[in-house]
Structures are given as structure tokens and as C-alpha cells.
């Protein structure tokens, strides 16, 4: 899995190195949580690496997003637009959903492998363009599947209702279908004031952080996440010990299994073994294969 940088300072270590290339990420948050800023930073980072950027705006207009990007310290956004490396598209939810149903396959056939970064902000109006939940799932699933072929997709999603409750249909459907889900929690605490916390709900094929991480929105920098202990190199004492013990017990398990386990151990860390000791693990492996 190839990783690309998210463009958010402090987020990449939490995502096991960055966002999966040619994947679909959904960023969920309430109003003011920083979703559009997140989407803008994601596009900006791609442009800095020579990728094309497409910003599909289904809510705020192009001028407003550009103005806010400039206020956030991204003055060169105008140059990228003039050079057509960055394209802003204003569309309504109905227009975009009709495009998905009728035109997207032929569009993707023409532009497959273009390796662009695509932000859809927000995805919510596309969901609302169809009322039937089954159709919603079909539409979003199809859109994510197809657009992934053109590049790496990041869609924002409005969080309605109770803060932190992601069980509503409008959030559940895209969450199931996306490869990665990032939740931006922003709420007022009676004692400590405005609190912002980021949680990675899922990130396929990645060893992502399961914790909540504080983040802030800084003028000139955008979203900045405090990765906390996520930067600490992981400990691999247990797999190293298990590997050594496997070699000592080589004759007691089939050679093909022995080889496979050695390869698997290369990827594991202490945390994967929970509270099990190397002796416990070796005993379980031998018991499984010994008659």
C-alpha cells in the first residue's frame, strides 16, 4: 500500500505514514470543525508534490474557499488555479449525483490512472440528492469506487444531531464504504472552552492510531494535530524473542508454516501480542501443529 502525505502536520504518523494512495477518505465533523480546511490542505500537499488537484465544492462557493485558503497563508493557490493544476468545480448535489449516475464511468474510462487528488466538500448534498437509502448506498459506493481509479479522494461529511454520534444513516453509509474515516470532534467544554479532538475511526490495511488526538486550527498552518506518543518507535521485543524461539523449535512445526511465521513476525510489534509472553505464543503454535 503506497502512502501519500496528508498535508496535515502531525497526522501522518497516526495514519501509519499517510493516506493510502487511490483510496477514499471521509472526514466527518460538525460545522466549524475544520473539514473544508482539511480538504484544502490535502489538495495543497498534492499540488506541492506535482499532483493535480480537483476541489468539488457542493456548498460554499469557489471564491469563499479561495479567500479562506489565502487567509490561512496559502497565497499561491491563485497561481495553481491559473496554471490549471488546481480546478475548482461548483456543483449542486443533484447535478453531481446525476453526473455520477450517467457520466462518471465514461469519464473514469478516459482518465483512469490520472493520479489526481480530489476533494468533495461536502458529500452530504450528494446523499440528499436521492431519498432512498438503498439508492444512497449504491450512489456513494459507485462514486467512491470509480473516483478512486482517477486518484485519491477525500470527501467531507457533515455531522448532524448529537455531537460524536456517528450512527445516523447519513454518516454510516459513507463510513462503511470509505477506506478511511477521520472524525473531527469540536465541542465546547464548560470548564476548558473549545475542545478539538481528532480520531481515526478506520484506515484500511494500516496500523492507525486508536486514540483521540488534540488538534488546533492555526492561522497560516491550518489543522495541526498533536500526535502524542504516536511518534515513538514501536517496541519489537516480543516478536524478536518469538522468532528466536521459533528457530530453536524448528523441527516441531512444518517447515512451510515455520517460514510463513518468520515472515509474519517481521511486521508485528509488542502491542499485537497483548499480554501474551513469547513462551505462551510458542507453546500455542507447537500445540497447534504437534500430534
Amino acid at each position: 500500500m503506497n502512502k501519500i502525505k496528508s498535508g496535515i502536520f502531525g497526522l501522518n504518523p497516526l495514519l501509519d505514514g499517510g493516506i493510502n494512495e487511490n483510496s477514499a477518505t471521509v472526514v466527518i465533523g460538525c460545522s466549524g470543525a475544520g473539514k473544508t480546511t482539511f480538504a484544502t490542505q490535502f489538495i495543497r500537499r498534492g499540488l506541492e508534490s506535482g499532483q493535480e488537484g480537483i476541489f468539488v465544492s457542493l456548498d460554499e462557493n469557489k471564491e469563499q474557499i479561495i479567500r479562506e485558503a489565502v487567509e490561512m497563508g496559502w497565497k499561491s493557490i491563485v497561481d495553481y488555479i491559473e496554471d490549471e493544476h488546481l480546478v475548482f468545480i461548483d456543483a449542486s448535489g443533484l447535478e453531481f449525483s446525476t453526473f455520477i449516475k450517467k457520466e462518471l464511468p465514461s469519464f473514469v474510462a478516459d482518465w483512469k490512472g490520472a493520479n489526481a487528488r480530489i476533494s468533495i466538500d461536502p458529500l452530504t448534498p450528494v446523499m440528499w440528492a436521492v431519498t432512498d437509502r438503498y439508492e444512497q448506498r449504491e450512489l456513494i459506493g459507485f462514486m467512491l469506487k470509480e473516483t478512486r481509479k482517477v486518484g485519491t479522494v477525500l470527501a467531507t461529511l457533515e455531522e448532524h444531531g448529537t455531537a460524536g454520534d456517528l450512527s445516523g444513516t447519513e454518516t454510516v453509509i459513507p463510513m462503511y464504504l470509505a477506506d478511511s474515516v477521520i472524525h473531527l470532534k469540536s465541542y465546547l467544554d464548560s470548564e476548558s472552552g473549545l475542545q478539538r479532538k481528532l480520531k481515526i475511526v478506520k484506515c484500511r490495511n494500516s496500523r492507525h492510531s486508536k486514540m483521540e488526538h488534540k488538534y488546533s486550527i492555526m492561522k497560516g498552518l491550518g489543522l495541526v494535530v498533536n500526535p502524542g506518543g504516536a511518534r515513538t518507535p514501536p517496541s519489537r521485543d516480543v516478536p524478536t524473542q518469538v522468532r528466536k524461539m521459533l528457530e530453536e523449535n524448528k523441527g516441531r512445526i512444518p517447515s512451510s508454516v515455520h517460514q510463513r511465521l518468520l515472515e509474519v513476525l517481521e511486521e508485528l510489534r509488542d502491542e499485537d501480542f497483548m499480554e501474551m509472553s513469547p513462551e505462551d505464543i510458542i507453546e500455542e503454535i507447537i500445540t497447534e501443529y504437534e500430534d
Binding site: E52, I89, A91, F107, W111, G113
Partner: peptide, 14 residues
């Protein structure tokens, strides 16, 4: 990398 995907999408939608 093929370029122009953004403009193509914009045209397709318009």
C-alpha cells in the same frame, strides 16, 4: 501522469 483531469471534469459537469 496525464494532465487535465480537473478541467475535463469541470467540462463534463457543465
Amino acid at each position: 501522469m496525464s494532465r487535465g483531469v480537473g478541467k475535463a471534469l469541470e467540462s463534463a459537469l457543465k
